[in-house]
Write a protein that binds this DNA or RNA. Structure first.
Lengths: 205, 205
DNA sequence: CTCGCTATTGAACAATGTTCAGCTGAGAGG
DNA sequence: CCTCTCAGCTGAACATTGTTCAATAGCGAG
């Protein structure tokens, strides 16, 4: 049995991506394998290499779907006031981590082999995420230059990311339970409170 | 050749741990393998399983060494004023990430298989790290209750962690270079500025 | 109906972690 | 000095991983 032509190349890609997401969501990132994906869609492992460059390529495409969903959820908050928008966006970030921890892990804990470069079409999505935050920061404090907003947005969102990472890994509950939502609120509230007030030289000491 | 008795069990453990650290420091976490460790110390792979439960056990022990070094570096800052101490500690956290990125990755990006529990002797080290931060936060604001300090310390340090993670992965430079040191300073400065002032209910909205 | 082209197979490869029966040599007892 | 025992260590095996590619099977053009 060869040359079945049951699916177009694009359909095969979509099927494979869906299979990855299904397998990871159920069994976790480390239970993912090329053979499982192939079996899941009724093909052999070899086929996948005519449609994706390698497993990492396939994973990246699966992650793009997850990221697009996250971006859409975060975008919905842009109508609110800047501070509320940022709080809501952080909430969505954490919500995804809690609703779909395995898919979240696949996105944010997957490493490229030997630090190989992430393709541009993928980088563009992570960039969008930061831009979304940056826009709200800019709205919050009009008199700041672009560089300051750039720095503050990356500072704040890297922090949100850090809290979410440790939340997913349960590394925080080792000393009594902590409410990650409260942590995010505390972070954003306090950081913005001081930053928006005076940030001309909020750096050394 | 069997039964050589050249090294004691404890020596073998130390040798293996050193080998792991050498291999990872040079070649990165994903190039680590049981066979490489064994070859590095002149033994066969099987031997390692008489001295460690599995590869993850060995990795955890190698990570403990790295963590102890980090803790020592951070402890040296406790003599400073609280705000300066926290800034310096964060600096050490980032410094390690930059000096030994591979070892840092092995510590902070290694996942236990299927989210298996991290042993207590290891958890104790990550806890110490938080306690170090907590102590400084407590010094900073005496009138706060333990729960508030607990929350704020974990919030702040998870954020420091998040910035360091993205720094190691170079996920921040995708939109022009950002100075991670400046980010850490901004984070700590602004968060502490607002938190130390009034933190009775720095939560909702 | 036939033929060619290509999508798909399936078997092979190297490398991974892990297990364990068995060997071999160090050290106790003679 | 010899011997015997016991355990530290070996080495080969297993299952599983990603990846490659010659071979093939069947669709669609002629």
């Amino acid at each position: 049995m060869a040359r079945r032509n049951e699916h177009s190349k694009a359909q095969l890609r979509t099927l494979a991506i869906a299979a990855v997401r299904a397998i990871v969501a159920e069994q976790g990132p480390d239970k993912l394998s090329v053979r499982k994906v192939a079996e899941h869609i009724g093909y052999t492992p070899g086929m996948l290499y005519h449609v994706f460059a390698c497993l990492d390529d396939l994973i990246l495409h699966a992650n793009a779907v997850t990221l697009d969903g996250l971006l859409q959820r975060m975008q919905a908050a842009t109508a609110l006031s800047p501070a509320e928008a940022l709080q809501t966006m952080a909430g969505q970030y954490l919500a995804l981590a809690r609703e779909e921890p395995h898919l979240w892990q696949l996105v944010f804990m997957h490493r490229m082999p030997q630090a190989a470069a992430v393709p541009a079409w993928y980088q563009q999505r992570t960039l969008q995420l930061f831009v979304l935050v940056e826009d709200q920061m800019a709205r919050l404090s009009a008199q700041q230059d672009a560089a300051a907003v750039h720095l503050a947005a990356r500072t704040l969102w890297s922090s949100v990311h850090g809290i979410s990472v440790l939340a997913v890994e349960n590394k925080l509950s080792i000393a009594g339970d902590v409410d990650e939502t409260a942590m995010l609120q505390s972070l954003i509230h306090h950081y913005l409170a001081s930053w928006a007030r005076n940030s001309v030289n909020g750096d050394d000491a």
